[in-house]
Design a protein around this nucleic acid. Structure first.
Lengths: 222, 222
DNA sequence: TGAAAACTGTACCGTCGGTACAGGAGGGGA
DNA sequence: TCCCCTCCTGTACCGACGGTACAGTTTTCA
């Protein structure tokens, strides 16, 4: 029992890295067993077929993802009591975590499967859908707490704002990976943070009289 | 020449739809030739291998994408002169175009390839990277025009804000596809529009005294 | 010590990407 | 008219891969 779990985990580890680099179609079972040091029969002892591997991979990935969000935002909740400041801190912590990833974010399995859709059965698509809905609920819950205290300065739908967090994360991952700029993802999360801040807090009067030199986006030609 | 082009285009049409549904790995050449009504030899007459098919597909997709953005934002530029109002209108038009897609956005090839990375050669990855950089330049150019006229109400980097457009689009596509909610993508674009508006325009004083009933995100439980 | 769990080994099948090459239809220019 | 070029078809074949079947062996733990 113990040994089996360990081997299974090793297969999943190898598979996850491979799938995020090459997609499911691009990852062969034979390459997985070569790297894991197991035989083909051994592989099929643990997973009936590739579809079941995908399901296990996805479930594990989502679980881990949820755990990370839990940790970050509950930590932020412990540090500050105000729901808005806590959410803003959470986004900051998330951005720091993302920029600390040495080789950039490896990619999101949920998005990977979304772009592989038809090859998996309905069950996997449903797992994927529920993962995104869980994000909506998670961030929606936090935003509703804020809305109960702070007035929204622009009329926006809470669920759509919650989805914005997922959008920016998923989109930021695509940009970061494609540009090979690991930091882009973290920057995008901070942009989102700015948006949330502006939605709930009055904009501070600008201290300087001339056009602010601290602003990157001035009128310089480039 | 004429006939060859036509066949080539037909292959690309079939391939694009298939790839966006199943990814590159999930799309077999044999399925493509079956649907196109061509032989395998005929296919390899037009494309040396799957990699070259991917390259042609990607180039065509990016070209088309650029054309659509050109049309929308130059139309917006014709309708209003002010750079901010023109950009906001462009985002509105884009959102309308996206919500008019009958079955939702089919998916972005750039993102699809990003999640398939290692299976293609450096050239394709470079094409992909340049496409994202072109988006950054495009939106960056428009935002710089705005910054030259309107003060930024929060310190944000122009290129990062430009990337935000791409992020929200790519992320919105992933959400829309995964949730099977075609409208989510259009909504996300409108959320981004709200962000841009807030970044450059002073927030209007709220007309109502009590908590606004027009706001979706009130304190209602769910 | 014995049964269940966790594998290995071997053989085999159909599909797929890809190669090689011969040849043929059809049109357009010399 | 002839020839050449574009645009394919047909056939045969290869190795890699996903997957099946099943018999046998080692490891683990109660």
């Amino acid at each position: 029992m113990r040994k089996g779990e360990e081997t299974r985990t090793r297969i999943l580890d190898v598979a996850e890295a491979a799938v995020l680099q090459k997609g499911f179609g691009g990852t062969s079972i034979e390459e997985l067993i070569a790297e894991t040091g197991i035989t083909k029969s051994g592989f099929f002892y643990h997973f009936r077929d590739k579809n079941e591997l995908a399901k296990a991979l996805l479930n594990r990935y989502i679980e881990n993802d949820e755990r990370i969000y839990d940790e970050i935002f509950s930590r932020a909740r412990d540090l500050v009591d105000d729901p808005l400041q806590s959410f803003l801190l959470g986004l900051k912590l998330l951005s720091e975590l993302l920029s600390d990833l040495p080789n950039g974010h490896p990619g999101c399995l949920v998005a990977g499967i979304c772009y592989y859709e038809r090859l998996f059965d309905r069950e996997i698509q449903e797992i994927n859908r529920n993962a995104v809905l869980a994000w909506r609920r998670r961030f929606g819950r936090m935003i509703r707490e804020i809305v109960a205290v702070y007035p929204l300065r622009e009329p926006v739908d809470v669920d759509q704002l919650a989805d914005m967090v997922s959008s920016v994360l998923e989109g930021g991952i695509v940009l970061s990976k494609t540009l090979k700029e690991p930091n882009t993802l973290a920057e995008q999360v901070l942009m989102l943070r700015t948006f949330v801040k502006m939605l709930f807090l009055p904009v501070a009067e600008m201290p300087r009289a001339s056009s602010g030199s601290a602003f990157h986006g001035g009128a310089e030609p480039h």
